[in-house]
Computed example of a mutant assay.
Amino acid sequence: MEAALRTLYAALMVLSSVASVSGNLLLLLVLLLNKELQSDTLGLTLSFSLSDLALGLSTLPFGVHNTLSWPAGYPSEGGLCQGSAFLFLLLQTASIQSLTWATVDRFTEMCFALSYCSIWTKRRSRVVVVSVWLFCLVNASLPLLGFGSYVYNESRFLCCPDFSPDSQCFVVLWMVVSIVAPILTMCSLYGYIVYVARKQARRGTFMCNELHCFHVPANNYLRSSIVMVTTSGCLLVCWLPYISVCLYETFSGEPSPAVASALSTWLVLTSAALNPWITCMTQTVDSQHIMSKF
């Protein structure tokens, strides 16, 4: 990669790191200081927010340092490389898994409002958070145990999983179970919410409180649809190039173009900076305006 492109890549990584740290710190402060926003499932939001914050403090600065110090690299067998790759995979997987469960929580609140409190209790929420992190720990430990491997990737300027035919089984398992399945789940849930919102916009709804009933404008439902479509679009834009490049390298045995590899890695790391704002957008959607179809 040319010096100008490496400088641009480093600058983009710095911006993503700053945005990730500031955005997630702001989200954590708002959630922890505002008791009205705290619920039994607060741990799910804290889980992916802390994961994204840790990515912004560890992996992104590590990538910036490696980009600017090129061509110096790290021996793949070294403790620093293995540890940073383990942390990268752990936080990356924990972020997408926790975000998926937070989406399931939000979907349950919208679609099953009457039984939501009995479905998502504080105890069950804690069990989900602990299970997610245990799963991610096991997942990230597999290459250290010989199932797959961690290497220093010169085009990504990071220590990461080895995307070669030798690690094909691990890469496919990790991609399908830990990345692709959660993304498809989130997009499907958001798609269903958009379908319901459009349906409600066509027929209109009257909402009632203790004092009176009022008509919910169609714009409220359409606004909700825009938020959900934007959220799904951000997920796909950030993750699809990374998934495509990694699977191409794994099945073809050929390295992908350096620019494509670096850009896809930057996009997937940038998702850590976008997640706090996605959370803010989706929490502004009034579930009563969407799910009065019952």
Rank of each mutant, 00 (worst) to 15 (best):
E2H: 12
R6T: 00
T7W: 01
L12I: 11
M13S: 15
S16M: 09
V18Q: 05
V18K: 10
G23E: 01
N24L: 08
N24D: 09
L29S: 01
V30Y: 00
E36L: 01
L37F: 08
S39I: 11
S39H: 14
S39T: 12
L42D: 00
L42G: 07
L50G: 06
S51V: 04
G56H: 03
T59E: 00
V64N: 10
W70K: 07
S76H: 03
E77R: 00
L80W: 05
L80F: 09
Q82G: 01
L90Y: 05
Q92K: 09
A94I: 07
Q97S: 03
L99P: 02
T100W: 07
T100M: 11
T100P: 11
W101L: 01
D105L: 13
R106N: 06
R106A: 10
C111G: 14
C111L: 09
S115V: 08
Y116I: 04
C117P: 10
S118R: 13
I119A: 07
I119Q: 04
R123P: 06
R124G: 02
V128E: 12
V129M: 13
V132M: 08
V132C: 04
W133G: 14
V138N: 05
S141C: 08
L142C: 07
P143D: 00
P143T: 03
Y152I: 00
Y152D: 00
E154G: 13
C159T: 02
D162E: 11
D166P: 04
V176S: 15
V177C: 10
S178D: 10
L184M: 12
C187R: 03
L189A: 03
Y195Q: 04
V196L: 11
A197R: 12
M207F: 09
C208H: 02
C208R: 03
L211I: 07
C213I: 13
F214N: 02
H215N: 12
V216Q: 15
P217M: 08
S224W: 02
C238T: 05
C238Y: 01
Y242V: 09
I243A: 13
L247S: 00
T250V: 08
G253K: 01
E254H: 09
P255I: 06
S256K: 02
A258C: 13
V259E: 15
A262G: 12
S264T: 10
T265A: 07
V268K: 05
L269A: 07
L269M: 12
T270S: 15
A272M: 04
A273T: 03
A273H: 06
L274A: 12
P276R: 02
Q283V: 04
T284Q: 14
V285T: 12
V285K: 01
I290R: 00
S292Y: 11
S292F: 10
